[in-house]
Design a protein around this nucleic acid. Sequence first.
DNA 1: ATTTCACCTGGAGTGCGCTCCAGGTCAACG
DNA 2: CGTTGACCTGGAGCGCACTCCAGGTGAAAT
Lengths: 135, 135
Amino acid sequence: MSSYSPGETAEKSGFSIDTLRYYEKIGLLPGIARNASGRRVFSDGDLQWLGMLRCLRETGMPIAEMLRYSELARGGDETVRERLALLQDHDQRVEEQIARLREQQAQIQWKIRLYSGEICGEPAAAGAVGEGLPA
Amino acid sequence: MSSYSPGETAEKSGFSIDTLRYYEKIGLLPGIARNASGRRVFSDGDLQWLGMLRCLRETGMPIAEMLRYSELARGGDETVRERLALLQDHDQRVEEQIARLREQQAQIQWKIRLYSGEICGEPAAAGAVGEGLPA
DNA sequence: ATTTCACCTGGAGTGCGCTCCAGGTCAACG
DNA sequence: CGTTGACCTGGAGCGCACTCCAGGTGAAAT
């Protein structure tokens, strides 16, 4: 087992068939094989690459940058340093993203505590969960 | 000090003036005051509310849901339970988001280690940082 | 043999969240 | 008094990342 139809690939990769076609069209999936009747045939390697794309995409990397990465990947071993740098930058951004989310989550949880009345026992509290909204 | 021009508000809130207008237009900023000549005047409360919106927005809440939240907030104290539920749901999603990011970051870091040669000492490793990309 | 089915193509359309624009108003400054 | 500058409005436009569509093909099932 090492080659997959578009349908299988969509299922396994989590991308829709349309997205797979789109990715191939813009150059994110270079060298996808075709069978005799012109249909795409995906390999295990393709699936692995799709996994990487998925990971980058879901961590917020824009397509333009994934494109750069995939061009580098096509470029062979001389581009390893650049690829490394790109990934390290991205890793950094993911780190910051997580940190920001944590702070914002804290703010939301503070609000939740406020709403659920776990904070301060003043009678006013029930009626004045200040939203900063005018009456 | 408790009232701000659109410009100041944009600066303090981090939203552009255009976005502030847009938010008012769609109902996310109900009851923004106007001065004699029709210009918007923002209060401290408005700024606080904008802070909340910012937090929700940046944690990935879609505008439609923020809209629901702000309608609830306008609805007074009877909606506190619903608002609480909404925020708890969102908090949950943020939690999951962070968890997913962590996993994906781990994958990226694994790749980084691979690229930086910290993994396995085989000579082949240098030339075969398998991308799953065909030659 | 014909119907079904998964797939193909190029290109148009969609949804979201803004962002920009033209044309106008008003208060303040020199 | 003229000009700046910040703001106003309604509505059009944009960038991103898909997603959908019409019309067609080729292999397989009935």
